[in-house]
Design a protein around this nucleic acid. Structure first.
Lengths: 143, 143
DNA sequence: ACTTTTACTTGTACTATACAACTATATATA
DNA sequence: TATATATAGTTGTATAGTACAAGTAAAAGT
């Protein structure tokens, strides 16, 4: 019973969180300059280095066509650069540009500040534990 | 420093969680019959009773036009019903129908089962604490 | 009675996504 | 080696979800 209630609470709060977080991304309180998808793509390239469309699609579990467009759009904005793989003419490799890195850092900083202020009442222990639990939750997602 | 790292981890894991959860909602592993938005709208009516478009829009912090369409769509599927407010001819009141309640319960059950299986290694204490921390996070979202 | 405000609906546009058709290149095989 | 098949990516088309702006109808204010 009690366990059932915890799960219900978690389900409820997580769906609510998604609603609010996605709302914030579209609202006038929107953080930074990057769309959510652009932020994630830049972060991926920044953390894991150059990648091609297929790798990106797999990392995000999205369709290749979706990533092809997202990458093309960021390339257009000079936030990422395209180079061809000399060993395979079909492949484009994308990498984050200095401008992209800077934009990412700016946006990330703003996002961190928001969390910082939302969680300012939390103890260090609570923040650490929450982070760890979230990590475990995300790991459990990988089917 | 260490605190900074917790926040960074939380930000990273939460954005990752959104990516994966939203992906799952679109994938072939999609749970249930209801779109995310429909699930939330039904849940809102189920928990808080009949409401009009404006109230729903405020509850979700979305534009009235968005909720107007979502409600019209669920009305079409007979999952919610529209009645007019006798004291104000402009207002439509929406309420969940028995069919809507049933659909909601079915979907909710499936969602809960998924969380149940994802969190099966967690102790009761961890689940309870996680739920509480999520609640606090969501409360902090209300600007 | 007339004006303004409110509640909602509808038209239009944009982002994010998937799937299908297509192009170009690489790999396998007869 | 020539042809067939597979792979990587792009582009066309469609849908959900959203916002903003214009329009309609009812209510409230003056």
């Amino acid at each position: 019973m009690q366990e059932k209630n915890s799960i219900e609470l978690i389900e409820y709060e997580l769906t609510t969180f998604i609603r609010r977080a996605v709302y914030l991304d579209n609202s006038e309180n929107k953080i930074g300059n990057l769309e959510r998808s652009a932020y994630l793509l830049l972060r991926q390239l920044d953390e894991f280095g150059p990648a091609r469309v297929k790798e990106l699609a797999e990392a995000f579990k999205l369709d290749i066509s979706t990533l092809s467009r997202q990458a093309a759009s960021l390339e257009n904005k000079k936030l990422i650069s395209r180079s061809s793989d000399p060993s395979d003419g079909r492949v484009s490799l994308f990498d984050i540009t200095p401008g992209g890195k800077q934009m990412l850092q700016t946006d990330k900083q703003m996002r961190l500040e928001r969390y910082h202020s939302m969680l300012k009442e939390w103890s260090n222990e609570e923040k650490e534990l929450f982070g760890k639990l979230l990590m475990r939750l995300n790991d459990a997602f990988i089917d």
